[in-house]
Design a protein around this nucleic acid. Sequence first.
DNA 1: GCATACTGCGTGCGCCGCGCACGCTACTCT
DNA 2: AGAGTAGCGTGCGCGGCGCACGCAGTATGC
Lengths: 148, 148
Amino acid sequence: MPNDVGHEIADALGTLLKRSTREQIYRRLTEGLGEAVDEVTYPVLSGLARTGPRSAAGLADEIGLDRSGVTRRATRLEEAGLLRREPDPADRRATLLALTEAGRAAIHTTRQRLAAHIEDSLASWPPGEAQTFARQLHRFLDHGPFTA
Amino acid sequence: MPNDVGHEIADALGTLLKRSTREQIYRRLTEGLGEAVDEVTYPVLSGLARTGPRSAAGLADEIGLDRSGVTRRATRLEEAGLLRREPDPADRRATLLALTEAGRAAIHTTRQRLAAHIEDSLASWPPGEAQTFARQLHRFLDHGPFTA
DNA sequence: GCATACTGCGTGCGCCGCGCACGCTACTCT
DNA sequence: AGAGTAGCGTGCGCGGCGCACGCAGTATGC
């Protein structure tokens, strides 16, 4: 029965939903980058790297968090020198969150590490197969049941 | 450059690592199943469904959690009638955690829902492509950098 | 032009889940 | 039989989160 495909994918994705798995991933990715970079603050760095400097409210919407959480995480990153608050020239009540050079380096390092881990596990695959798999995974997660 | 494959997969997986995404997934899966079934208690149900009745310590190892957490989650599920504690006949200090009929029904419902969501998003794919994708995903996550 | 409503940010508060450490019961081994 | 160990449950402190409030700055209506 074709229902097996759904269950097989569900089982596979269950691995990623496990708390301990995610913790280990983040631990490896952020190793040696200082105390401030961890599973909690990573989405802030990642979101800023994607879109450039922006307000706390906009970032909160993107990462699905309350603005207070963004404020606290930003404070931690600011104290560690990875993030800088600069006043919005167009609106004096707003403060833009921007990565410092160290912050850009940190997110770059983590992204490189994750990509390297992934490519290691794909090393034994036929190259064409790996690329089609990457495209399919991207399509599945973007237009799938996990984005709406 | 082949490095793009790693980054593309990394970006795709980032979606699943987002807190809000996981919350929405669990919210959909456990809708209408009672207050006791949520993101926190789900791994207990899932683990028991996979392996049958077992001790709290073994379950804690599997889901990567402290035994105290398993105890508390099991208590919540027990009060909701989804889980039953039965004494281990071979060891009177041990208590086996076992799903009740309602617990089995709950985990079955969530699994069916998740599989249905996944298959909906795969409906437009060529059938062979979906199956090979499922196999590749399974292989990637099991023998990949996320299991060790 | 001024009063009022609104927006954006930071902070205090309470809640909840977690890991750690302790106590208790039961088993094991010599 | 006694010492050490394994299994479980609970009290405690920590940390992240959402909510609600206060403050500063902006927009609107008259």
